[in-house]
């Protein structure tokens, strides 16, 4: 079912055009990297603050609150560019082990946010009052760093896998390597 969805989405007019476009694809890939950089730094500073390693003089709540909106915007942009990239090569990515690992890690990040939203991220004010960052907040920060670094590395890994000779790959071969 996922495979048939992948086949359908990469065959849509838009993604067929994007795949074959000379400039649009690398531009979107670059924008994906730009948002990774900016969004990554926001996650990094949040986690480092929770670990007491950066911005120690600022209240935890202040750091979290101020970055919340920009982080959401960054995530939305990054996911959008990511979906555009994945849609172009949906079939070969379906078989790509690194793509699967990346999606799994993103799934773990969703679980991470659901798990720690209440117990950590909504309790920043309490941490500032008591001046103590509890153990579970530090665990959340370390896990977040580890998972996001894994996502970035798996993302790079995707490009190292030779596509299997599926329909898309065969088409590309027949058409002389466009896209």
């Amino acid at each position: 079912m996922i495979l048939s969805f992948a086949l359908w989405i990469q065959a849509t007019g838009f993604f067929t055009w994007l795949r074959g476009s000379g400039y649009a694809y690398p531009i979107i890939l670059s924008l994906h990297m730009v948002t990774l950089t900016a969004f990554g730094a926001m996650i990094l500073m949040t986690d480092l603050r929770l670990l007491g390693l950066a911005m120690r003089t600022r209240p935890v709540a202040d750091v979290l609150d101020q970055l919340r909106v920009t982080k959401r915007c960054g995530l939305a942009l990054m996911v959008t560019f990511g979906v555009l990239l994945a849609g172009c090569k949906a079939e070969e990515y379906y078989y790509n082990i690194f793509f699967r690992l990346k999606m799994t890690t993103l799934g773990l990040l969703i679980i991470h946010s659901l798990t720690f939203r209440r117990s950590v991220y909504r309790r920043a004010a309490l941490m500032d009052e008591t001046g103590i960052i509890p153990g579970n907040a530090k665990t959340a920060a370390v896990l977040s760093l580890a998972l996001w670094i894994t996502v970035a590395c798996m993302g790079r890994g995707i490009g190292y896998i030779e596509p299997p000779l599926g329909i898309h790959a065969a088409l590309r071969y027949l058409c002389g390597g466009a896209g």
């Binding site: 969004f39 990094l44 101020q66 920009t70 590395c153």
Partner: peptide, 29 residues
């Protein structure tokens, strides 16, 4: 992988200051 993940650490943290200069993000600081 080292090269790419360190983008966030290097360029990303510079961009945090850029966003602040543009009046975005960490505005209270």
């Amino acid at each position: 992988c080292f090269h790419i993940t360190a983008f966030a650490l290097s360029i990303g943290t510079i961009m945090l200051v850029d966003f602040r200069l543009l009046g975005l993000g960490l505005k209270h600081e």
